[in-house]
């Protein structure tokens, strides 16, 4: 192995990658996530969010309390599609109003 310091194991993002991204001027954690891909793999940031957030605080001088995590997206644990596809979901979202947009859609849906 080549001596890399791995920050995000899922996406093979290195410490050097994060530092390079900061040097390019990307300072918001959402931007660092998008530029490097950290936190977008199978663990969804459970192993790497803390370390990148702390690096951001340390390297940019922003107070840790001013650093927010990137948006947490469901599902928090991965789910096979078949468990979501069963009956029983018909009534989940009931919000309708006169302003519904069905008629706005073209032939393709």
């Amino acid at each position: 192995m080549s001596g890399k310091v791995i920050v995000c194991r899922c996406e093979d993002v290195t410490l050097h990658d994060v530092e390079h991204t900061l040097a390019r001027g990307y300072r918001d954690i959402e931007e660092v996530k998008r530029y490097t891909g950290f936190g977008t793999g199978p663990c969804q940031g459970k192993e790497c969010l803390r370390v990148v957030a702390c690096l951001l605080a340390e390297r940019t001088g922003v107070a840790p309390s001013a650093i927010a995590p990137f948006t947490t997206r469901p599902p928090i644990a991965s789910v096979p599609l078949r468990l979501l596809a069963g009956p029983g979901a018909e009534d989940l979202t009931s919000a309708r109003d006169d302003d519904a947009t069905d008629e706005d859609h073209g032939m393709a849906g």
Partner: peptide, 23 residues
């Protein structure tokens, strides 16, 4: 999530065991 899962499983049966990571 449920609407999408049903549509995918119907069209591509092999997707049944594919895991959703995020929405």
């Amino acid at each position: 999530l449920t609407t999408m899962a049903r549509a995918l499983c119907e069209l591509v049966p092999q997707f049944g065991e594919v895991q959703v990571l995020r929405q």
